[in-house]
Amino acid sequence: MWTARPVWAILLTVLATFVAAFSSAVALVVPASLPLWQRVVAGCATALVAVGLVVLWRRHLVRRPWSGVALSWSWRALGHSLLGIGVAAAAILAAQTACVAVDACAWVPLSSAGIPLSTILVSTFISAVLVQGFPEELLWRGNLTDLLGRRWGPGVVLLVTSVAFGMLHLVSNGSQDGVGEHVLYVIMATALGFACGAARLRTGSTWAAVGVHGGFHLAKGLVPAQPEHLAVLLAAWTVTLVVGGLALLLVRRPTRSRSHATADRP
């Protein structure tokens, strides 16, 4: 089908990302005074829009099984998600700590906003996971990675999806100012896409990519740092995300002994 061809698949993924992002507008701008359950409903709606788009795409346009998006429900999925969260949180905290050490950032207490802690926690989770991590990774590291993997090798798919995901952020507003910061923001988003793709490739599960993406925003939201020089913080995030992605790809899994492997043979 034409929607499975690389160029069209990437363009449609970009379009689907904007559609899901539009549906998340309510979750992103609702005032903090709204009841928490309304914020949860708004975030869940965003995730459901992404799921609906992928289901329609795979069922009616490319006729591929849902299993290709690698989002099975199991205890292993929980482990993969936690692995991704841990890698992303370590990367972001390392970057922000380094920036604070060179006076490029300053730590910001969560209580400084005057918002109840429960509201902060729920709102951060909604934005990090339901609005951004889950729907975007379902589209990019789930559906698109599966479609491109039918034509290209894993390395090429990882490179293409990372660059395309980064270029998507040309229209994102991350408080950047000037051409230099906009370029660094795109490069940082590419590094985030690389770390997410590495998690998907390493584990075979899109839940690991959701964990990396969600963990990135959770760490930023729950351990915030106010940048004095945004360019330095963006560069630091880029470096640590790339290091985290490379660690996922290069660290070898433990192997069983030869006697165990022989005993498993029929």
Rank of each mutant, 00 (worst) to 15 (best):
W2T: 11
W2I: 12
P6V: 08
I10K: 00
F18N: 09
F18M: 13
L28D: 01
L36S: 13
W37F: 15
Q38A: 08
R39F: 11
R39K: 07
V40E: 04
T46P: 09
A47E: 02
V49G: 05
V54R: 01
R58V: 08
R58S: 13
R59D: 11
L61F: 15
L61K: 03
L61N: 08
V69C: 03
V69F: 07
A70T: 02
L71K: 04
S74P: 06
S74K: 05
R76H: 05
A77K: 04
L78T: 13
H80D: 13
L83D: 04
A90H: 07
I92G: 02
I92A: 02
L93D: 07
A94G: 12
A94Q: 09
A98S: 05
A98I: 05
A101C: 06
A101Q: 04
W107C: 09
P109H: 09
L110N: 10
I115L: 10
T124M: 10
F125N: 00
A128I: 09
L130C: 02
G133I: 09
G133N: 06
E136W: 06
L138V: 06
L139Q: 07
R141Q: 06
R141E: 00
N143W: 15
N143E: 12
L144G: 03
T145Q: 04
T145M: 05
D146Y: 08
L148D: 00
R150F: 07
G153D: 02
G155L: 14
L159I: 13
F165E: 04
M167A: 15
L168S: 09
S172N: 15
D177A: 15
D177I: 14
V186A: 06
T190K: 00
G193A: 09
F194L: 10
R200N: 03
R202N: 10
T203Y: 04
A208Q: 15
G214R: 11
G215T: 05
G215D: 11
A219Y: 07
L222Q: 01
Q226K: 09
Q226L: 14
H229N: 04
H229C: 04
L230W: 12
A231V: 14
A231E: 15
A236D: 05
T238I: 12
A247S: 05
L248G: 00
L249I: 04
L250S: 01
V251H: 01
R252T: 05
R253E: 13
R258M: 08
H260I: 14
H260M: 14
